[in-house]
């Protein structure tokens, strides 16, 4: 299972509290794209809130962190860190700080 931390607004939308545990099925490495596909399949109300529904691109003020690294600009098809795939560390989706 992959542990996913959603930002507060998206937890409210998805009617969840705390971390979400997602199973990524199929062969091949666990990637950002496959985790987000699984999140959106289980919580369809999140379609379009994390990434654009058509281009698939991350929304500008959304960031992805894991294992103390910013993975936001990694390829969506790059394998996630092993500690995420083993469920030892969460994949964190967050709304970027945007202030002045």
């Amino acid at each position: 299972m992959i542990r996913v931390v959603l930002p507060a607004h998206l937890k409210t939308l998805a009617h969840v509290t705390g971390e979400v545990a997602i199973e990524v099925t199929g062969d091949g490495p666990v990637t950002q794209r496959r985790v987000l596909d699984a999140i959106e399949a289980r919580y369809p109300m999140l379609l379009g809130t994390i990434r654009d529904r058509h281009s698939g691109k991350r929304r500008p003020f959304v960031r992805f962190y894991a294992c103390e690294e910013d993975l936001s600009n990694e390829s969506p098809d790059a394998p996630l860190p092993e500690r995420v795939t083993r469920g030892e560390e969460p994949f964190i989706v967050l709304g970027a700080m945007a202030g002045g």
Partner: peptide
């Protein structure tokens, strides 16, 4: 809507007591 997470449409069928998201695919 919001700058972080985009556009959603909410629908209530009970006069605003409860809400559910509906489609947000505005292509």
């Amino acid at each position: 809507s919001g700058g972080w997470f985009g556009q959603l449409i909410q629908r209530s069928d009970d006069g605003g007591k409860t809400w559910n998201t509906v489609g947000n695919d505005f292509a």
